[in-house]
Design a protein around this nucleic acid. Structure first.
Lengths: 135, 135
DNA sequence: ACTATTGTATTATCTAATTAATACAAGATC
DNA sequence: GATCTTGTATTAATTAGATAATACAATAGT
């Protein structure tokens, strides 16, 4: 599993790990059921404290990206997310509201936002190499 | 001007102020040309250090929401933003990318995101009372 | 049952962000 | 031009966030 840490580009290590794994899953380079490296293994590879990886895995579990099977390892989740769909939509709605308010401040119309969104969707789903910038 | 500070709901005070003023402007409760309370006045009202409000006003100025006239006070900006449109679109594009990636993780289709966005737009532009939750 | 391997929990250290204390600079207003 | 009011600048204190050190708990595999 290809993960690279940039020592202090400002983004904390655990978040870099979270984001990169999210991208690997989104890109299909990690498929459902696949096992992630054990915390210690990945920590050693990245020369980082195991707790840092543990935190990343914990966040990924909360986000529904992976599942932990106590002493048997960590695996890529089957369905999208164990969070109820309602819960996921709630989160998404918050993000959308933020975006709309911001667009309003910037004097960008709803139509323009929708168009831009479609454009970006195409771009994202064509070229696979992007600079990681998730939440 | 109605601003409420929640002592440590996690969001820093200066950000709470920024967000609430952004909303007041977005909702038309603060109109272009209107003067904001002086830094010290608002600081006193919120029982907070003046520097904290100064920071909020500085961020609002950078965001193009307000203009400062040196010793004459702080006023709601006239046009949307002094940032070049290109610059604004760049910021918006980043936000959109984040949203799309997240939607992907949540297994929500582009169409659903677009629909939800239109719904939320209606909601936001109908009922004016919302719980503040900006960037 | 034993042991190696897995994730977990607790605490400490370090770093960055936030807020406050205080003094300053400059224009408005009389 | 005196002075009051405005935002600014600098520095210190506080708080929160991230990472590390270390010890623990549970279970898979034998």
């Amino acid at each position: 599993m290809q993960i690279h840490i940039t020592a202090s580009d400002g983004v904390p290590i655990y978040l870099q790990v979270v984001n990169q794994i999210k991208y690997l899953v989104a890109a299909g380079r990690l498929v459902a059921g696949e096992e992630l490296p054990p915390i210690r293994t990945l920590a050693e590879k990245l020369v980082v404290n195991p707790n840092t990886i543990a935190r990343a895995y914990r966040e990924l579990e909360i986000a529904g990206i992976v599942e932990k099977r106590r002493t048997a390892g960590t695996y890529v989740s089957d369905q999208g997310s164990p969070l109820a769909r309602r819960e996921r939509m709630k989160i998404l709605t918050e993000r959308i509201d933020q975006l709309l308010v911001e667009a309003g401040h910037m004097d960008v119309s709803l139509d323009d936002v929708l168009k831009l969104m479609q454009q970006r969707y195409s771009v994202i789903h064509t070229s696979r190499q992007k600079d990681a910038n998730d939440d």
